[in-house]
Write a protein that binds this DNA or RNA. Structure first.
Lengths: 253, 253
DNA sequence: TGACTTATTGTGAATTACACACTAAGTATA
DNA sequence: TATACTTAGTGTGTAATTCACAATAAGTCA
């Protein structure tokens, strides 16, 4: 990289007034076959006592994603989870203290990996089923969460995100459960079977699990196939409505 | 909003070191049936002489989208264009001066509305065909642009974004041209006709335009239909690959 | 007039989606 | 130990959609 010339000082961005920047994370997981989200209870003004998405200020030497991973690990202790940038919220007035811009990530934690870390800094950390949230969340976190759910829902239809929520070994009908949960829609067993088998995305573990009825075969997600990128879209004719929703969320405030 | 209690000061975000925040805009338009993007030439270090996406620091009292619209209007003088948040780029080292976080929007400007404003502040502003860009762009703007194109391409398949690039009145085959341009793929004339007519998304203007062959009927985009949200997906079996690409772009640096 | 150019509509084969019936393989219980 | 019950997984025909390509329409140009 070139060195700054003498006249470089006439355009110094550090002179500008600056907002604070935080990275927040919407962390989803599956518990008792229901979608849950992780919230922390605030111990200080503003919104003292309210539940909020985990997050914090970024360090100057880490990337946005690193920052999100750090938050994620501080709260859940898990690593190697699916993480993607969701949206950046930055309306003036979101935070009564000052102008704060939040880059929000969303994460999917596998059902068998979730651990909660209670530390001194975050004494109250809890998983909430997304259909039974606290009445009111801190800041604009309700809108953020709504948007995250709608994004998750629409991405389910053309990605393999659902696997990120399952334990390493699972049955096909458990997978179907996730789809039904998140899409809030009943799916046909037979068609689901066929469709997912056809993709070749599953690897038979040879194991079975006994239960009340016929034992079920257990599968593993064949992460990334060398040949074709697996596409498992449950329904072809759905639209991604999540974009509009994010913009609405921002402009509603 | 509640007032801060006495003990509020023990957690003052303003004490933290803060990055600069900019809003950049990828502005697309259609010229001579080709997709173009607007770039400005930098007149100062760093990347003096290089072309860059238009952008600037946010004002403390405007929302992110307002900031993007302001940039957009400063450069092109147009209003009421399609604008959506694309992604937030924030790796350390993107800007040699300091830590800068850029919230990038992308905008689609209708073919008959593009005006360029050359002011003292931005003497060199120019539309470039996306297939013939300057060799190297400033900062990480090449990656940002790549991502914007891939997002545009994938959104074309399940939204009505293409109409935002056309003038108010257009022929069906012009619309098909846009799809072919952006998807970089040949489409069947007849099937395109049928598919788009079926959606009911077009309104016949009654006008025709004469040319070399049979005169073509001119249509108008029936923006938002009361009944159903129009879905015009050209191909059902495509996947949105743009997400992965954005993450890759960030981690490549 | 007839060749040429661009715009639109028609048609049928091939593929895919969908609803629903059926078979399989275990447990519980009388 | 039969039979009811429960969950797992497969088959099948119809309906809908996709797709390639042929046919027609309506003008210009020489």
């Amino acid at each position: 990289m070139e060195n700054p010339p003498e006249n470089a000082t006439n355009y110094d961005p550090s002179r500008y007034e600056r907002p604070s920047v935080t990275v927040d994370v919407v962390i989803f997981t599956l518990q008792q076959r229901e979608l849950h989200v992780l919230l922390v209870q605030r111990s200080r003004w503003p919104f003292e006592g309210f539940w909020a998405l985990p997050g914090g200020f970024i360090n100057m030497d880490e990337s946005l994603e690193e920052s999100a991973r750090r938050e994620l690990e501080e709260e859940t202790g898990v690593q190697n989870v699916y993480l993607e940038q969701l949206y950046t919220f930055g309306n003036p007035g979101r935070d009564p203290r000052m102008r704060v811009i939040s880059i929000v990530y969303f994460a999917l934690v596998q059902a068998d990996k979730q651990i909660l870390r209670s530390s001194d800094e975050t004494p109250n950390v809890c998983w909430f089923p997304i259909r039974e949230l606290p009445v009111k969340l801190a800041f604009d976190h309700e809108q953020i969460l709504d948007y995250a759910v709608s994004r998750l829902s629409s991405k389910l239809e053309y990605t393999t995100l659902a696997f990120q929520l399952l334990p390493e070994v699972f049955s096909i009908l458990e997978l179907k459960d996730i789809y039904e949960q998140i899409l809030a829609e009943k799916l046909d067993k037979g068609n689901f079977y066929r469709k997912i088998k056809e993709t070749g995305i599953l690897e038979d573990t040879g194991q079975v699990r006994e239960g009340r009825g016929r034992p079920t075969r257990l599968w593993r997600f064949r992460g990334s196939h060398p040949e074709k990128q697996f596409v498992f879209r449950w329904r072809e004719d759905k639209v991604d409505k999540s974009d509009r929703q994010a913009r609405d969320a921002e402009s509603q405030e």
